[in-house]
Design a protein around this nucleic acid. Structure first.
Length: 267
DNA sequence: AGAATTACCTGAGCGC
DNA sequence: TGCGCTCAGGTAATTC
């Protein structure tokens, strides 16, 4: 599933592939995902040029001159540039045809993704307005984390996955960052010390940045995994041993999300 | 205000 | 072969 690193890599690829392209025709092939896909896109977008591709959390933001196309890939979504003469697939919900004959297709079997449109500042859009600081920028640091956790008794892992606290940290990287920081995922957030908050803010940034750096060969094709399972220390390794101490990893559920940690290395 | 729960959706994997 | 079940899980909306 696309996590923040995959979304960022997608952003970089699409910025390279789409900037300057002129939209010719838009086909909305599914009436709704989590929300209705705006029908006005097929009227509004033709003739517009894509000026840039930005990202906020896991949302992709396409500058289309007169407004912004907002796309979230959900669990299973991806965007693929193809020859416009090829037929669309079963779960290609949105097609954006360009004047040069290529087509951008939004493919999402699970339909957890989102497509929205705004003519205002995208940061003010209801879907984006409440999102917390970007984890890869300076506004997310240990001091911020310390301040915001004082009144929260929820498990620190669930706190990390709350987009209002920090943008774009999903289940995989919440597990990984906590392991690297040596903090148990079930600790009430308010029990974190100042130094633990600094450590955690750092490891969140590290695991995300390293995944982006390792993703240079990332391709979006059918059947391609968008992340790097072998690099994970705990995620998906519930029945294995800890890479640090050799002890058994423990698998539990927090907020109905699979959670893996080392009871010896994390406290 | 913060926390917990629900809803959305379909493919993969499994036991029988 | 196929049926039914569970799981995967981002996040907005709803409820407590």
């Amino acid at each position: 599933m696309p996590e923040l690193p995959e979304v960022e890599l997608t952003r970089r690829r699409l910025e390279r592939e789409l900037t300057g392209k002129i939209i010719d025709r838009v086909v909305v092939r599914a009436p709704k995902l989590r929300f209705p896909i705006p029908q006005e896109l097929s009227v509004t977008l033709p003739g517009r040029t894509i000026r840039s591709v930005a990202r906020r959390g896991k949302y992709l933001l396409f500058d289309c001159e007169t407004g912004w196309l907002i796309v979230h890939l959900g669990m299973t979504g991806f965007l693929r540039l193809a020859d416009g003469t090829t037929p669309p697939g079963k779960y290609d919900h949105l097609e954006i045809f360009f004047a040069d004959g290529l087509v951008l297709r939004f493919h999402d079997p699970r339909k957890f993704g989102t497509v929205a449109w705004t003519t205002d500042d995208p940061a003010a859009h209801p879907l984006l307005a409440g999102i917390g600081p970007e984890p890869l920028t300076g506004t997310f640091d240990g001091s911020y984390l310390f301040d915001v956790t004082r009144t929260r008794r929820v498990a620190v892992k669930q706190m990390l996955m709350n987009a209002a606290i920090v943008a774009g940290v999903g289940n995989i990287y919440a597990n990984e960052a906590l392991f690297r920081a040596g903090i148990r995922p079930d600790r009430p957030a308010s029990t974190l010390s100042r130094s633990e908050c600094h450590r955690l803010a750092l490891t969140v940034r590290e695991v995300l940045q390293e995944s982006i750096d390792q993703g240079s060969t990332y391709r979006v094709e059918e059947g391609t995994v968008a992340y790097h399972p072998l690099d994970f220390k705990v995620y998906g390794r519930g029945k294995e041993t800890c890479a640090g101490c050799g002890g058994a990893l423990e698998e539990t559920r927090l907020g109905n999300r699979s959670t893996v940690f080392c009871p010896h290395c994390q406290s």
